[in-house]
Amino acid sequence: MRALIVDDERLARLELRRLLAAHPEVEIVGEARDGTEALELIRKSSPDLLFLDIQMPGMTGFELLELLDDVPQVIFTTAYDQYAIQAFEVNALDYLMKPVATARLAAALARVRPRSETPRLEQVFVRDGDRCWILRLPEIFLLESEGNYTRLYFGDERPLIRRSLNALEAQLDPAVFFRADRKQILNLKWIEKVEVAVSGGLLVTLRGGRTVEMSRRQSNRLREILSL
């Protein structure tokens, strides 16, 4: 497992490196002193795991994540920001309080999932005002274009992210995400019901009740995929 340590304090990085020495499965591919350095290292070595401090000069940990297309798995390390972290959907990440207890570090590492073989987008970092999510893609049932932004639908949330629908489409697994029309991409695994609309196109109802009407051309493609 390839890991990157991001912290502005040398002594903090030193201490974390010392603690990780007890975990041979973790290979430390680099250390970054701030967000700018981290961005560079992530693009260069694409680590599986980030140990990320939140308060850093120049750029906070959250701001760094927003700049990433593909978010690696993240373990936050912080002195006193647990309240900020608890605002997250915890399923996607863990956090460690400094000074870090060894048992706590082991538990966090145990939750890290092995990386899949295909280099597909697995999770995105989403921030909407004060609320943030590290979101695993299967949870998204609909993506909707709003100019250069894209609105994500998952659970009861519908935050806007700063990426275009076309850019996202290139990174999505075509077996799961289907382009319904110019503006919408839907998650095939969330389809509950398909009907033929008056216009001849298909009317798809997703789990949760949301309906999407498809163009005639895309309807034909969907019929092929679903072998209707």
């Binding site: 304090e9 903090a12 030193l14 002195a79």
Partner: peptide, 9 residues
Amino acid sequence: FNCLNSIRA
């Protein structure tokens, strides 16, 4: 806590 972490290092 940052201070304590530094001291531990």
